[in-house]
């Protein structure tokens, strides 16, 4: 599994985006995470699954128009 900027992380069955962020121990308040081609917003972090082998990008900022 690949994280952005080449960081790898361990995957486990049933892992959600919220689980992933906890595991990373990254205090930045991400609002959006891209899992492969799917854009996952904060309100869905707890329920959005991270499939095995996913490419994940943490989107640092949503800037608006």
């Amino acid at each position: 599994m690949v994280l952005d900027e080449g960081r790898e992380f361990c995957w486990r069955e049933g892992m959600t985006v919220a689980d992933l962020l906890k595991e990373l121990d990254d205090p930045y308040p991400y609002a959006v995470v891209r899992v492969n081609d799917a854009v996952i917003s904060g309100p869905d972090f707890e329920k959005a699954a991270v499939p095995r082998g996913s490419e994940v990008h943490l989107i640092p900022l949503i800037a608006g128009g």
Partner: peptide, 21 residues
């Protein structure tokens, strides 16, 4: 390509995010 993909979808990327929030 890792962030908002403006070069692929432009500002349309905002629609699902705005809806989610």
């Amino acid at each position: 390509p890792k962030q908002n993909q403006m070069s692929m979808v432009g500002t349309a990327h905002l629609v699902p995010i705005m809806n989610d929030y």
